[in-house]
Design a protein around this nucleic acid. Structure first.
Lengths: 161, 161
DNA sequence: TCGATTTACATGACGCGTAAACTATCGACA
DNA sequence: TGTCGATAGTTTACGCGTCATGTAAATCGA
């Protein structure tokens, strides 16, 4: 037990370790970016989660089961219900029960939803540029590679639980 | 697949831009790390926000006004009240109204809170190592530098709004 | 000294993430 | 047929972030 050693090293200065510093930086950066995205989306009456769902549906181009949507987001199963509820009440998506398996409920993006997404593409792209446009292409590539490498153990680990 | 639809989808393949890919990677990585942290903290009866408050209080080493705490977190002003409420009911912090300015409420970490934090240091450090211990020191340094650079415009920008 | 503004928090409502328990449906097996 | 277990979604309950308001105390101008 190296408890005594740690007692002497107890100087918790700026950061305990480079690992901690990196993790806190990831969290902080994600928060900043998230805040900026939220503000933009709010002007269009959407929350980030709602936007996320619409993006997934557009990307797929066809109806998706609700749990499939939940899978592609970070959100757990129960939360997806209310999310789809609100999107449905906004008439941006619609539910459609499967005929083959009546347990399955497909979700489709409506024309209104697609139109809203279309209006968002430009501003979102502009915001992305504004947020990290000051990084060079090589820097972006390095950042992306490091983040993917950092996340690799997690990606595998979440599958089993 | 209608031709019209393909026109619409044409420009949005895997990612619209490296900027978008980087931003999504930051968000995704932060989510993964956050989930891991949440699970660990839950075993100790804490939420990430609560842990954050305790860390801030320990780092400061003396009573802090509530708004000062909110400032150091990402959380907005209104939410901090209930957060402190719960921590207080757990007897991990205590409120202390200022005598000079009776509007100000100081928050202090209790011995029980400090003790809980102390028990968390080891597991948290271990988790950090587990999460990104597979990155080399130079890689960590690069990642930290890139994230700080990426965030720089945001850090300045949040002040004004 | 009086009134208006500002500051420091609290409150209430809503959206969302998460765990736990429930309903409904499907498939398999007796 | 009937039951049993797995699967798809929902409901419920709680913590938390955020906005809009409200309240009490300090401060500033007239």
């Amino acid at each position: 037990m190296a408890g005594r050693l740690r007692d002497e090293l107890k100087k918790r200065n700026p950061f305990d370790s480079p690992e901690q510093e990196a993790i806190l930086n990831v969290a902080r950066t994600a928060d900043r970016f998230g805040i900026a995205m939220s503000r933009l989306l709010r002007d269009f009456g959407l929350t980030p989660s709602q936007y996320n769902v619409l993006r997934i549906l557009r990307g797929e181009g066809q109806p998706l089961p609700i749990l499939e949507i939940a899978d592609r987001m970070i959100t757990a199963v129960p939360g997806i219900t209310g999310l789809i509820d609100r999107l449905e009440s906004l008439e941006l998506v619609s539910r459609d029960r499967s005929v083959e398996d009546r347990r399955v409920i497909f979700v489709v993006i409506t024309p209104k939803g697609s139109e809203l997404l279309g209006r968002l593409d430009e501003p979102i792209n502009a915001l992305h540029g504004q947020l990290i446009g000051h990084l060079s292409r090589p820097e972006l590539k390095t950042l992306i590679a490091l983040l993917e490498k950092a996340r690799k153990p997690c990606d595998g680990k979440l599958a089993d639980s």
